[in-house]
Design a protein around this nucleic acid. Sequence first.
DNA 1: GGCGATTTGTACGTATGTATT
DNA 2: CAATACATACGTACAAATCGC
Lengths: 82, 82
Amino acid sequence: MLLMPSDLAAPDDNAELVYMRVADDIAARIASGELTPGTRLRSERDLAEHYGVAYGTIRRATKVLRERGLIETIHGRGTYVR
Amino acid sequence: MLLMPSDLAAPDDNAELVYMRVADDIAARIASGELTPGTRLRSERDLAEHYGVAYGTIRRATKVLRERGLIETIHGRGTYVR
DNA sequence: GGCGATTTGTACGTATGTATT
DNA sequence: CAATACATACGTACAAATCGC
């Protein structure tokens, strides 16, 4: 994807891992208020295409965000900002 | 993984190879009746974690078992005892 | 209730890079 | 150098849940 390995800040360790960079990017958009609670994210397949990564990589990224409590995913519905 | 290099018997040549030891272990469980025909094995990724080896190593092990006719693998479904 | 479209969930298949032997 | 093994990522197939019609 297009994100650079580092732009001054270090949002997370393992920033060299693609799925971590994706997770950090989405987390930053939530923190900035660009994505507000209740908002539904695009489908995981769309996100994969958007970031230019594989579906499995998005799965890993969203798993991180779920574990951080930032999002919630419902089978058959979608992924929501909390 | 936990299997010892040898316990008296030599189920296979190259028992020092990790993927062969995994293949032998699964083959032994089939031979013993612990795994019966039609049974679905755990996913290859799960097996990798279970044995404490890399995914590619499980791929090698299951390839051996497929070639022996002991298991059958279906893309997107799973691996079954024959 | 059925049916199709959308979406998440799970699983196999392949490629690449690094390290070790 | 070649084979083994690890780790990550990309790609594809199949399955299940939800929703609107």
